[in-house]
């Protein structure tokens, strides 16, 4: 579905990013993978290679603008330009308002919002060389509905929705589609340490009565990166199994 396409995925070493890397590579894309852990990226690169796929890996924390700029400089030197960007890198921290200090707020926004915007700014320049492409941002169900104890995290994910909708308008005439996914309760490291009562409560709120998998979200990413979604832009697509918050 994606032969010859070059697709960057941030936060690619684990969870949804990792599942997306494996799926998009299996569909013929050269995946360009960014994450903070080079060790995990190299293992993923080997896995992709042994399945017959192709990837490039870069150790880069998206909250560090200089590191991200260097990745794009390297790609530009190699004349590798993007067809798609998957803005997946993100961090989640829970705290009720009186416990949510400025340091935590800054840390979440540096990655989830400012970092995402910097990657996108550079990626758009790259995608323009291909005369069009697709950007997939990772919001969250809590960015749409809000959630107790997640005012900071949820607001960072709401910012992604506003950014997606505005950018889709800016870039539509340039044939660059911009959409966001709003995953629900997904089985990733982010929820590994969740209190069992909250886990059970979340599970009961899902219409399909099962937790989502990173692969469930990766399939939606494939849809948005491929021509299957050639006329879809400015949309926030829930991948939540019918979860109600």
């Amino acid at each position: 579905m994606l032969p010859g396409k070059q697709i960057m995925i941030t936060g690619a070493s684990r969870g949804i990013g990792r599942a997306a890397a494996l799926l998009l590579a299996s569909e013929g894309a050269q995946v360009i993978l960014l994450a903070r852990s080079l060790d995990q990226l190299e293992k993923l690169r080997d896995e992709i290679k042994s399945a017959g796929g192709n990837s490039l890996v870069y150790k880069a924390d998206v909250s560090q603008a200089e590191a991200v700029s260097e990745v794009f400089e390297d790609l530009n030197r190699q004349k590798i330009y993007l067809d798609s960007l998957v803005n997946n890198a993100g961090i989640m921290k829970d705290a009720v308002i009186q416990m949510a200090g400025q340091d935590m707020t800054r840390e979440i926004y540096e990655t989830n919002v400012f970092g995402m915007m910097h990657v996108t700014r550079l990626a758009v320049k790259s995608i323009l060389k291909k005369r069009g492409g697709s950007i997939v941002n990772m919001s969250s169900i809590v960015g749409v509905y809000g959630n107790l104890g997640q005012s900071v995290y949820a607001s960072s994910k709401s910012a992604i929705i506003g950014y997606t909708k505005s950018l889709s308008k800016e870039l539509a005439s340039l044939q660059i589609r911009v959409n966001a996914l709003a995953p629900g309760f997904i089985d990733t490291d982010m929820i590994k340490n969740m209190d069992s009562r909250f886990y059970e409560r979340n599970l009961q709120s899902i219409g399909m009565k099962r937790i989502g998998t990173p692969e469930d979200v990766a399939k939606a990413i494939l849809f948005l990166c491929s021509d299957l979604s050639s006329y879809v832009t400015g949309q926030i697509i829930g991948v939540d199994g019918g979860m109600v918050l």
Binding site: V124, K125, L128, K129, E170, S173, L174
Partner: peptide, 13 residues
């Protein structure tokens, strides 16, 4: 402002 983005891209190329 939109075509300016394309212009920059074309000059770079």
């Amino acid at each position: 402002s939109i075509s300016h983005m394309v212009l920059i891209s074309r000059i770079e190329e």
